[in-house]
């Protein structure tokens, strides 16, 4: 095994080009577990810890450019207004120690269906900036990023540089079910983002399908129902029947498995409950902001 320590982004790309099978390591929260338990013996470890720019972020007019290695702790502390869904998701990641090291870039690199960041990214909307030395930079929409169980759209010579996440224009929520009250891998997770500017909603579901997914039928239903009922304008409470239908469609979007963490049936059920609850929380918060807005 060789340990590659690029000091800059350019060096990192060069190293990845030279050794496409090299495994990037940042927080180590996935890679080191596999090495410690003899599940993985890559020829090269590519340490991204020295590439300072990966730990930087920038809040732009419409998006936040989040460096791939910005730890969850910082997202929770510094970005909860711009990226509330992701900040909530970050808070559910493992433990303080892991949140100090783990990052969205690492989550995307592993592309586990249980990655906590994914549902929030799907709901907020974002593009993943990836780059190779040979072909330069490109942006992959999050909807096209997850290609299979623990597979993503990265080419072997590409690295994740940053994520461009739409700044929240409305309430966002993230909920995760685990069988312990802290430090637990998601049995399933759900994220909802209201986008009042476009009068749309977006969702993200984790651990309930081979990849993180959006509940598209549920989104379409809710978009139509909110529009038809004039709810965006009136700010009235969304009737329970709409919540129930939304929950049912979210549930129906799942394609889960039975595993040691939970049954498929439970996952479907729980996603429905989370969909209903996060809709309630988001909508209440939207109504509150609407009520406040005229006075402002």
């Amino acid at each position: 095994m060789d340990f590659l320590r690029p000091a800059s982004w350019e060096e990192a790309l060069a190293a990845k080009a030279a050794h496409p099978a090299a495994v990037p390591i940042a927080g180590g929260t996935d890679v080191m577990v596999e090495i410690n338990f003899d599940l993985r013996r890559p020829d090269h470890l590519l340490d991204l810890g020295r590439v300072a720019e990966l730990r930087e972020w920038e809040v732009g007019e419409r998006t936040v450019r989040l460096g791939a290695s910005v730890p969850y702790t910082q997202i929770m502390a510094e970005l909860r207004h711009d990226l509330p869904g992701l900040a909530l998701a970050s808070h559910t990641v493992a433990s303080p120690q892991i949140r100090n090291r783990g990052s969205v870039g690492g989550n995307l690199g592993t592309a586990s269906p249980a990655g906590d960041a994914h549902p929030a990214l799907l709901a907020a909307g974002c593009e993943v900036e990836v780059e190779s030395r040979a072909r330069g930079s490109r942006r992959v929409p999050i909807d096209a990023f997850f290609t299979g169980v623990k597979r993503n759209a990265l080419a072997p010579d590409e690295l994740i540089r940053a994520v461009h996440i739409d700044r929240a224009d409305g309430p966002q929520q993230f909920s995760k079910v685990g069988t312990r009250n802290a430090m637990v891998i998601a049995v399933c997770a759900f994220s909802l983002a209201l986008h009042p500017e476009s009068r749309t909603v977006r969702t993200g579901i984790g651990s309930a399908a081979p990849t993180p997914i959006r509940a598209r039928a549920a989104e379409e239903f809710l978009n139509a129902a909110l529009e038809e009922g004039g709810f965006w304008d009136t700010g009235e409470a969304v009737p329970p029947s709409i919540g129930a239908r939304f929950a049912g469609l979210a549930s129906g979007a799942c394609n889960p498995i039975d595993d040691v963490r939970g049954s498929a049936a439970y996952r479907r059920h729980a996603i429905g409950v989370l969909a209903r609850r996060t809709l309630t929380w988001c909508w209440e918060s939207y109504r509150e902001s609407e009520r406040r807005a005229p006075c402002a």
């Binding site: 340990f3 320590r5 080191m32 340490d47 120690q97 100090n100 090291r101």
Partner: peptide, 14 residues
């Protein structure tokens, strides 16, 4: 920064 040292590759501590 508080971390789990089992998840830090030795080379990352350079």
């Amino acid at each position: 920064v508080l971390v789990c040292s089992c998840l830090v590759a030795a080379g990352q501590a350079e």
